[in-house]
Amino acid sequence: MKIELGTWAVEGNEVDAAGRELAIEARGLVKRFDGFTAVDGVDISVPRGAIYGILGPNGAGKTTTLRMLLGIIDPDEGHRRVLGHDRPTDVARRIGYLPEERGLYPAMKAYEAIAFLAALRGVPLKEGRRRGRELLEENGLGYAADRQIRQLSKGMAQQVQLLGTLVHKPDLVVLDEPFSGLDALNQGKLERLIRQLAADGTTVIFSTHVIAHAERMCNQVAIIAGGKVPFAGPVDVARDRLRPQVRLETRAQDGPWRAALPADARHEGAFWHFTLPESGVEPLLRALIEGDAGILSLSIERAGLHDAFVAIAGEAAARALEANPEEEGRR
């Protein structure tokens, strides 16, 4: 075996340092448009069976990155390997792709639209129609099977297109801003569907500008800002870049125990707030008890993905993330 770009090459496939087989391995991806660098040296490794999020604001390079991974456009620099192949188009029939630009033929019936998308991936039309009706029924849309797309609400049409993305039973599902335009109920349905896909062994990678979706759904994330990826890896590792925060309430207002509080401790209302010391909670508790602080409550809160995003990508990127409009930008 040989090591290459941080992974092991094994019989044409890639595995990461933990020995997990990779569905996607990309290194140094660069893409320029008319002199503008939309993606600048992106590295991504997606284990098979993972739910992987690409998190960043509009214009950060999420869509361009996904299109390079799929072979829709070629990188100007770098390389990618998808499902064990250097040419992603060679395995297009094993991939389901939901683009950010939603679009179905408005005159088609819902089940026919799914069958049409299945046919593009090599499924016979008769089988595609059967699967289309079956998927609609399983997902609570059986009543809409014979309705034309133009007769469906925007959310229902998006669900039909999503089912068309899955109808050929792909090994890899790529979703570009899949939650955009969905109400809370349908977002919940989509989250459950994504979790079920992963439970069945399907690899799911999706882009989003909503931190909550990535935090709830993803095993791993790539944080992208300005075309660069300052972090790619497990969500827990991103959160652990920041030390946990402590909230302390004491009966005593002063005493020798105050010396145990770190320099960043601040008193707000009835509570002290500060970063958990490097030494951990045990020495702190001992000092509080021996100093007669009279502990009324003490809670330790791990940093969330939002705080990690700010620390990794910067406040400007975080503000851009929060200011995103509903629809994703073209780059």
Rank of each mutant, 00 (worst) to 15 (best):
M1N: 09
M1S: 10
K2D: 08
V15L: 10
D16A: 08
A17R: 14
V30Q: 06
K31M: 11
G35P: 10
D40A: 15
V46T: 11
A50C: 02
G56M: 04
P57G: 06
G59F: 00
G59N: 01
T64D: 05
T64E: 04
L66V: 15
L69W: 08
I72V: 15
D74K: 13
R80A: 14
R81D: 05
R87T: 14
V91W: 05
E101G: 09
M108D: 14
A113G: 02
A113K: 03
A118H: 00
P124W: 01
R129H: 07
R130D: 10
R131K: 10
L136N: 04
E138D: 05
G140C: 06
L141E: 08
Y143V: 12
D146M: 05
R147E: 11
R150S: 11
L152Q: 06
K154A: 10
Q158V: 12
V160W: 01
V160C: 10
T165F: 02
T165R: 08
D171K: 15
L172E: 13
D176H: 12
D176Y: 06
D176F: 06
E177F: 12
A184Y: 09
L185Y: 07
L185N: 08
Q187A: 14
K189V: 10
L190D: 00
L190H: 03
Q196S: 12
L197F: 01
T203D: 07
S207Y: 03
H209Q: 08
H209D: 03
I211K: 04
A214D: 05
K228W: 01
V229M: 07
P230M: 04
A232L: 12
V235P: 03
R239N: 06
L242Q: 09
V246G: 03
R247C: 04
L248Y: 00
R251K: 07
Q253G: 15
Q253W: 07
R258P: 03
A259N: 07
D264E: 13
R266F: 09
H267L: 13
G269I: 10
G269A: 04
A270G: 03
F271L: 08
F274W: 05
G280D: 01
P283Q: 04
I289W: 08
E290L: 13
D292A: 14
A293Y: 02
G294L: 13
I295F: 00
L296G: 02
E301C: 09
A303I: 13
A303Q: 12
G304D: 14
D307H: 14
A311H: 07
A311G: 02
G314L: 07
A318Y: 13
A318K: 11
E322M: 14
E322H: 08
